[in-house]
Write a protein that binds this DNA or RNA. Structure first.
Lengths: 114, 114
DNA sequence: TAGCTATTTGGCTCATATGCTAAACATGCT
DNA sequence: AGCATGTTTAGCATATGAGCCAAATAGCTA
C-alpha cells in the first residue's frame, strides 16, 4: 500500500535529498533504467559506502525504489513522485511557468508549519 | 544582460537554497508581490537576522531580487529563474512528467562535474 | 548632529551532513 | 563449510548550516 504521508514533511525530505549534487546526478543516471548500487558507485569518485548512504537518503525520500537481484541491489527512479513533489511546489510558487503532465495530486494545504 | 553562469554550479546554488523549508516558504510568500525584509521576518517565528541570512542565500541563488525603498529593502521573486533551473533538472530526469511553459533555456550540457 | 527604524554583519553554539576506513551482513558458488 | 562478491552499517573527523544576540550600517526626520 502507499504510504499515507504524502503532502506534509514529504516535500522537506524530497528537497533535502535534492540538495546534494551527487544525489541529483544519481537520479539523472537512473533515468536510463535500473542500476545496481555498485554500478552507480563506479560512476563517481567517492567510495561505495558513501554512495550507499546517498542511496539511503534517496530511498528515504522515496525518490528511488530498490529490489534485490541475487547478489546485487537494483535501484530505480520514482519519476512520478519526483515530478509530483517538485511540481507541486513549483506550481505553488510560479504556476504560470510550468505545467504538469499528470495533475493527479491534491492541492497543497494552506496550513504551513512556519 | 543575463549573467553568464547559468547552467553549471547554478543548479547547485538553487537546489541548496530550496533545501530549507523557511526559504521555500519565503518564495511562496513572495508569490503575492514584493515584500520588505521586515514584513517577511514578521511572518516567521525566527529572528530578523536569521531571515536576513535566508534572504541572502536566496539572493545568492538569484531566486529573489532586492530593491531599496527608503528605509526598507523590498524583495521580489525571480519566478522565471526558479522555473527554469528546477524545470531544467526535472526535464532531465523525468521529461515525460512535466512541461515548461517558456522553453527558452539552453539544453543542459553533457559534461557533468561528478 | 542626534535619534529613530530597518536591515545586515560579526561571532558564537549546536546540530546535521558528508566523506573515509574497517567491519559486518547477504548471497551465490564450489 | 569456506570463500568471493556486492552492499550496508559502525564509528570517526571535518565541514556546512541554521539559529541566536550584540553591534554595525543605511536611510529618514527633526
Amino acid at each position: 500500500m502507499e504510504s499515507p504521508a504524502d503532502t506534509a514533511d514529504d516535500e522537506a525530505s524530497v528537497f533535502r535529498a535534492l540538495a546534494d549534487p551527487t544525489r541529483r546526478q544519481i537520479l539523472e543516471d537512473l533515468r536510463g533504467g535500473e542500476l545496481a548500487a555498485g554500478e552507480i558507485a563506479s560512476r563517481f569518485s567517492i567510495s561505495a559506502p558513501s554512495i550507499s548512504r546517498h542511496l539511503g537518503v534517496l530511498k528515504g525520500a522515496r525518490l528511488v525504489t530498490e529490489r534485490r537481484d541475487a547478489n546485487r541491489i537494483l535501484y530505480s527512479l520514482a519519476e512520478e513522485r519526483l515530478a509530483m513533489c517538485v511540481g507541486r511546489f513549483l506550481s505553488a510558487v510560479c504556476p504560470e511557468q510550468i505545467v504538469l503532465r499528470h495533475s493527479k495530486w491534491r492541492a497543497a494545504p494552506e496550513g504551513n508549519a512556519r
